[in-house]
Write a protein that binds this DNA or RNA. Structure first.
Length: 137
DNA sequence: GCCAACGTTGGC
DNA sequence: GCCAACGTTGGC
């Protein structure tokens, strides 16, 4: 079975990568965008996820993994959206900032750069490798 | 704080 | 079913 790679955004003052490390795992709910929800549904157990801090930090700071695939998001009264569960893997040795990512030609096609408001987006194997290299991790 | 991008809502 | 108005996200 092949694993895929993803990127999720979170405002660190709402929920940071440090919070995920402290908690050990978390329910990734509250996504209210159809494109993002499709990506959540495509996640498989063990898929690895870049954790990006939006608003403050503006950088990929760590790696998480999917430990529970999509299930109904209890915080959605209409019952249309889904959540997954994530656990921390490791913090990056060095955060990779948005400006570095924008300056890297290998990342020009990255979904999160092309559509800045998308809170859950796919990451190709090449993009994944590039970002880890930029993080020295 | 401002504004661009983009999704959603509601009048017609 | 179209499209203008409005709300939200997120970078600057």
């Amino acid at each position: 079975m092949t694993t895929s790679h993803w990127l999720v955004k979170s405002e660190p003052n709402a929920y940071s990568y440090g919070d995920l490390q402290r908690d050990g795992k978390t329910v990734w709910d509250g996504v209210r965008n159809n494109a993002a929800a499709l990506h959540l549904k495509a996640m498989r157990d063990g898929d690895e996820v870049l954790f990006y801090h939006s608003q403050e930090g503006l950088a990929v700071v760590g790696i998480a993994k999917v430990i529970r695939t999509a299930f109904p998001d209890k915080s959605d009264p209409a019952g249309r959206f889904v959540a997954v569960e994530l656990a921390p893997v490791r913090a990056l040795k060095r955060p990779v900032t948005l400006s570095e990512m924008k300056a890297e030609p290998a990342l020009a096609e990255m979904a999160m750069l092309r559509q800045s408001r998308l809170s859950v987006s796919p990451v190709s194997p090449d993009q994944w490798r590039t970002i880890l290299k930029m993080a020295d991790s």
